[in-house]
Amino acid sequence: MTTDTTPRTITTQRVHWDLDYDVHLGRTWGRFMQGLTDKQILANSCPECSRVFVPPQAYCESCFVATDQWQELPPEGEVEVFTVAWHGFRGGPKPPYAIAGIRLDGASTLLMHYVSGLDLSDPAAVAEQLPPGTRVRAVWAEERTGQILDIAHFEQI
C-alpha cells in the first residue's frame, strides 16, 4: 500500500458573472406578458384534457397537444403552498419575503408570486398567517411593462 503525499491542488474557483441579456419569450409567453400590461391574467387550456395553464404553456405536458385556447382568469385565487426567503440575492427583493404557489380561480396549475402584508418577524408564526386555502388577489404595479412584476404582489383578501 502506498500513501499519496502529493500536495493537493485547488479544484474550484469562485467566479462572478454580472450578465445582462434578452430572452425571446415566444408567442405564448409574449401574449401572457402583453396581457399583464393590460391588467389581464391570460391562461390557455388543453383541448384534450381541459387543463388550464397559468402561466401558459405552448403544449399540454400530459396530452402533448398545442394549447391554443385562451381565456382571462380572475386576479384572485387560493394559496396552496408558500415559503419565506430569509436570505437575499443580488437583484432580488430585500428579505425576508414570502413566495406562494397560488391556484388562481379557474386554473389547473400554480402561479408562483410574492405575497405581501405578512408579519415575517417571527418565523414560527408565519404559517398561521398563510394557511393553505387563504384567498389572495393580485395587486397591479402602477407602471406595467410586460413583465411578471406587472403584478406587484398578491395580498390576502
Rank of each mutant, 00 (worst) to 15 (best):
V79P: 01
I41H: 02
R144Y: 06
G146S: 01
A127E: 05
I10K: 13
Q71R: 04
A125E: 15
H153E: 05
A141H: 09
I151W: 00
I10E: 13
P56A: 14
E155K: 15
H87S: 14
G88R: 08
S62W: 10
G133D: 06
E76Y: 14
F89W: 10
R135L: 07
M33D: 09
D18W: 05
E142A: 10
Q69H: 09
E142C: 15
S108Q: 07
P95W: 03
D105S: 01
E48G: 01
L36F: 09
I99R: 04
I99M: 06
T145H: 13
T145L: 12
V126D: 05
A98I: 06
S108T: 14
M33T: 09
A127C: 08
P75S: 10
Y21W: 13
T2Q: 07
P74E: 09
R137V: 03
D4H: 11
Y21P: 12
A152V: 14
S50T: 11
V65Y: 03
Q147A: 14
L104A: 02
E48N: 08
V115S: 04
A58G: 05
A98F: 01
H153F: 06
I102K: 00
W17K: 05
V65M: 05
D18F: 07
M33V: 10
Q71P: 02
A125D: 14
M1V: 06
S62V: 10
G133K: 04
P132K: 05
F32Y: 04
